[in-house]
Design a protein around this nucleic acid. Structure first.
Lengths: 349, 349
DNA sequence: GACTACAATGGGAACGGTTCCATTGAGCAG
DNA sequence: CTGCTCAATGGAACCGTTCCCATTGTAGTC
């Protein structure tokens, strides 16, 4: 009958205790890292009973009593963005190394989904949260913060919220891009960004670009537009920029990997090979070296960023309550110079 | 004092009940979708009390009593593979739509990590599992299966295990590739695969390739090698293939996206532009249309596959226990013909 | 030899929900 | 009016842990 079916339903701590002929307290101790409080005999007996029954502590019950779920939440704005995935990979490894599990939630850049996921994560009593979303801090997020859940912002900055921040040194990144482009002879630049309202880092980059461009006496402009809404608007912007008469060699600077992809497609559609028209992107992608003549990028140390985010979080988790001031960790990008910014032919000739 | 600190610690069902002046049973009912059993008055009172206290049911406690965690686990062999992420995206959306959350675990193709994650997922009492890993079913996996956790294999097939399978029609995919390559005039083919021991789909593809190639009277061979171990072995294989004298136009067929990337890099390193030497890949990637002259691919319907996996799982979850026979769902790929298989110049000339 | 200290173990009350069962009162047929 | 049904509600046991506290035994101290 049902005996064989229900046979190996999950064993409980009580069953193990009975099998071993000890109290459940002892079994609990055995599995909670208090083995040194148990005698040899007891340890071996529990071990064998547990093995026989294939026992695994129920994390739900554990979390309920102790109040710690060993769960870290992570909010990702766009899971299809390789950069996000790479960072997530780093976060996950660091969490795992410390015995935490990561629950990843993708928001598809949708504030409603973000709120939903936040509510859900609260429901699972996550102990910490890594966020790579949130244009505006939602009510749910504020509540989570108020409740004392440590927060780490990834590549974002949320003014009102008291939270650690890990990300790229955006100002320096833009400076490096301008340095490189200028040194290669480009003097008329178009900076293309995804909408800045969603992410503070985009805003920083864009503003820095405008200020520094002016400061350095370079021509050009910066615009932000939505990629998925209509690809044509980006193509139009590029077309306009290239069509406008100018004394100085032109280059396009892409605010992130998505933009680089869209721009590269647009250029290809117009039959333009980068180089004479400069092309440079923030974020390194698999294919940047493959597209003729190679696209110059500023690579983010994704793994470092992910690890740092997790470790900042876990650290705060351990020094529970001690209100250390928020930390800001900013990484430097790495320049990968390739053919797309080899300089305008005239300058070399 | 600590009053302000602990002020907004998470509210419990009991506190809500007291605030509303009702029993916790009623509050429980309110939050478990049994609202129709409560009077209007009761509903409004509970609603307002809950709102005031910002109450959210504790999923841990829920899972403990009812035995359902509303958690689905997912094992991914390689999170850095865009294909996996795309599928995961589909799985996640489908789960969310039905009120389940997805816990994603990346195994980095490492059986040890796979076992760890499996043990962990068991610990959280996940209700179902989507697997895109597991060369050999581990002990942990078997146990999970024995306990009655529904399993769906993604792009894999594990003989001994009774589980549903969702993935690509691998045989048909290879046939389509051969059809296309042959029709474009290529008669000497090299099929490159990642190690087949890890994934049954790789094995199917490879075997099908060998059989069909022979059947169709085409020349060539199939080899499998590890990409990360040493990239040079792949480069060597390609070099050898291209160097060998042959009467018929040569083409490379890549078993998945990773291979396509590695091969494209190798070709570029050797200064070879695809076309005369044919190049075709399974899995569509962002950049395949960008690399000169465009790389022909067979695109998997990743979103469909992900959704189907989730839905198969949830369905089995609902018809609890009814031992319907395992389902196999196989999707057809879509051919994206591009310049890399435009045919050898001689044949056109 | 009595007392203390401590190590080893067990008992049982939480934790925050769900759910079975009992209770109450109103509506209704006979 | 009585008895029955049924809707609305509450009480309390239970889910699998942890952890506080009590109990035991053994060694060490004076």
């Amino acid at each position: 009958m049902s005996s064989s079916k229900a046979a190996s339903r999950c064993a409980t701590i009580l069953e193990v205790a009975q099998q071993a002929g000890v109290s459940k307290t002892s079994v609990s101790r055995y599995f909670s890292g208090e083995r040194d409080r148990l005698s040899e005999t007891m340890q071996t007996r529990i071990a064998s009973a547990a093995k026989r029954l294939n026992y695994r502590p129920n994390q739900m019950a554990r979390g309920l009593k102790g109040g710690h779920s060993r769960l870290i939440g992570m909010l990702i704005a766009d899971i299809l963005n390789p950069f996000s995935v790479a960072v997530m990979h780093g976060v996950e490894q660091a969490c795992r190394a410390r015995g935490f599990s990561l629950v990843v939630c993708n928001t598809d850049n949708d504030p409603a989904q973000e709120r939903d996921h936040l509510a859900l994560l609260a429901t699972y009593r996550i102990e910490g949260l890594v966020i790579n979303a949130a244009g505006q801090p939602s009510r749910e997020l504020k509540q989570l913060a108020e409740q004392g859940t440590p927060l780490v912002l990834l590549d974002r900055s949320l003014g009102e919220l008291r939270a650690d921040e890990v990300g790229l040194d955006n100002a320096r990144t833009i400076d490096m891009a301008l340095d490189h482009l200028a040194s290669q002879g480009y003097g008329d630049l178009l900076y293309l960004s995804e909408p800045t309202s969603q992410a503070s880092s985009r805003q920083v980059r864009l503003e820095r670009f405008e200020r520094q461009r002016e400061l350095r006496g370079l021509m050009g402009q910066a615009i932000s537009l939505s990629l998925d809404k209509d690809a044509s608007s980006l193509e139009q912007a590029v077309t306009d920029f290239l069509a406008a008469p100018s004394q100085r060699p032109k280059a396009l600077l892409c605010g992130n990997g998505n933009v680089t992809l869209a721009v590269t497609r647009a250029l290809q559609a117009k039959g333009i090979v980068p180089g004479a028209i400069g092309l440079m992107g923030i974020d390194e992608l698999d294919w940047c070296q493959l597209v003729t003549p190679g696209i110059t990028t500023l690579a983010q140390p994704t793994k470092d960023i992910g690890r740092a985010a997790a470790e900042t979080l876990l650290q705060r988790l351990e020094s529970h309550g001690e209100a250390a001031p928020p930390r800001r960790i900013h990484y430097q990008p790495r320049l990968l110079a390739r053919g797309s910014t080899q300089g305008p032919p005239t300058s070399t000739a």
